[in-house]
Amino acid sequence: MRKASAVVLVVIALLFIYAALDLPPTGDHEAPAAVHVSPRYIESAYKETATQNMVCAVLADYRSFDTLGEVIVIVIAGIAIVYIVGVSRPADEI
């Protein structure tokens, strides 16, 4: 069983390595993601949001609905932990 799972893992790792050979190199300005979307943000992010950090502008302004969902997921996870782990204690301790 261990041998079979090891063989499967090695095959999957070789597939991943083979797929990664086709990725563009780091910092390539001709990559498909850097041709269409990035210039729009680089040109107009500071003009539209007055924020110098472009990551912050994209994360909290252009894609802020995504960030809202992320925060709500984290808070709901916290509340779920309270109900799962803390349910065995009496109510006056919470």
Binding site: K47, E48, T49, A50, T51, C56, D61, S64, T67
Partner: peptide, 13 residues
Amino acid sequence: PAEARALGILGIE
């Protein structure tokens, strides 16, 4: 509007 956006970003952060 750009500065309002910057302040709004600070608020949600």
